[in-house]
Each structure stands twice: as structure tokens, then as C-alpha cells.
């Protein structure tokens, strides 16, 4: 209600304030300030705001303190900046460091060369030993191979000798007729039969009754 009253007053509608109406459509306003487009209130029209007064001594003191603070801060900042420059890569300390590093690198290279020489000596010895060992092993292998070859040759010669001895009984074109005649003269029958008791009856057309019982061969059963 108060808000509404205010707004009505600002609108210059004082009479409506007397009606004490309660319109539903009115929204509550949080900050009760006059709208920017309204002129200065009549009560404030000729008001001259008082200049704020500062104690001169206090001002001077504050200024002094603040100046001091700024000076100190600047000093600290300069100090840290100088430190940063000193510690950065292009500073004299860093350059000195790199020089030291280079010297150390040279020393390291020298030491490395010495080590390399020592290692080269050791390596030469080792390589000689390895060479010798390899030569010996190859020689041994060669000897073994030669022996194997000799053995193989001997075996072959033995076979040839045996074959030569056997060649006396070969059937050739000269004696083939005689061999045929011999074969025809002595026929061999490889057929035979076995009865349940294991007796062998040789010949293709042999009957059991043809063989006398004394001459019957019996098959040899193992186990």
C-alpha cells in the first residue's frame, strides 16, 4: 500500500491516495527509488550536499604511509626481478655454468678415450683368441670330414669287391641256355599244406596218405 501511495504521489495523483484501494495488479517493488525520468524532489531541490571534510594531518599521514608502502613494494619487486634476470639463461651465472659444463665435457671425452684404448687392447686379444679357436675348430672339422670320406670310400670299395666275386655266378648271354636247362632239370615245388596237428605236407598234389607217417615234418611252434 505504501508503495502504491509513493508511486501515486510521484505521479502527482494525490487524490487517489485517499481512496485506499487495494489493486491486485500492483507488483511489489523492492527498491523504492524514484524513476530516473522524474525531476528532483521538491524537498531536495535546493539542497547543497556538504563537502566531506578530511583531517589534514590524517591525510598527510595516510599519504606518507601509502608512499612508503609503494616504495617498499617497488623495492621488493625490483629485487625479485633482478634475481630473475640473474638466474635466467643469459645471465653471467648461467654462462659460467655452461662454461664449466663444457670443461667437464672435455674431461669426460678424455676419460672416454682412455677407456676406449683399454677396451681396444682387450678386444684385440679377445679377437685373436677367438680367431685361433675358430681356426682350430675348422681344422678339426676338416680332418673329421676327410676321415668320413675315407670310410665311405672303403665301404664302397668293399661293396664293389663283393659284387665282383658274385659276378662269377651271373647268368649271361653265354650260359643262359645251360641255366635254363638246369632249372628245367630240377623243378622245385614250394607249395605245402598243414594239418591240425602241425604236420607239413610238401608238394602241390600230395595226399596225406602218400607220405609215410615216419617222414612227416612237424612245424616248429614258438612260445
Amino acid at each position: 500500500m505504501n508503495t502504491l501511495g509513493c508511486s501515486l504521489k510521484y505521479s502527482g495523483l494525490h487524490a487517489l491516495n485517499e481512496l485506499r484501494i487495494k489493486p491486485v495488479c500492483v507488483q511489489s517493488v523492492r527498491w523504492k527509488r524514484k524513476p530516473r525520468w522524474l525531476p528532483v524532489a521538491k524537498s531536495k531541490q535546493f539542497r547543497v550536499p556538504e563537502r566531506p571534510k578530511f583531517d589534514e594531518g590524517e591525510t598527510l599521514e595516510l599519504r606518507r604511509l601509502y608512499d612508503r608502502y609503494r616504495t617498499h613494494l617497488r623495492a621488493v619487486r625490483k629485487y625479485l626481478k633482478q634475481e630473475f634476470i640473474d638466474l635466467s639463461a643469459s645471465s653471467s651465472a648461467a654462462l659460467e655454468g655452461t662454461q664449466n659444463e663444457a670443461e667437464e665435457h672435455q674431461l669426460c671425452l678424455k676419460e672416454n678415450e682412455e677407456w676406449n684404448k683399454q677396451v681396444a687392447l682387450l678386444r684385440e686379444q679377445r679377437l685373436l683368441q677367438e680367431q685361433e679357436a675358430r681356426r682350430e675348430s675348422i681344422l678339426a672339422k676338416l680332418v673329421a670330414a676327410e676321415e668320413r670320406q675315407k670310410e665311405r670310400m672303403e665301404k664302397a670299395e668293399e661293396m664293389v669287391r663283393e659284387e665282383k666275386e658274385r659276378a662269377k655266378f651271373y647268368i649271361t648271354a653265354d650260359n643262359i641256355d645251360k641255366a635254363i636247362e638246369d632249372a628245367l632239370a630240377s623243378p622245385v615245388d614250394h607249395n605245402y599244406a598243414i594239418d591240425l596237428e602241425g604236420h607239413i605236407y610238401r608238394g602241390h598234389k600230395t595226399k596225406p596218405s602218400d607220405v609215410p607217417p615216419d617222414e612227416l615234418e612237424k612245424i616248429q611252434v614258438q612260445g
Binding site: 621488493v76 619487486r77 630473475f84 634476470i85
Partner: peptide
Amino acid sequence: IRYWLGRG
């Protein structure tokens, strides 16, 4: 902190 203050 010193480093960063030194860098401004």
C-alpha cells in the same frame, strides 16, 4: 612465487 613476481 619469487619467480613469478620476478617475471612481473
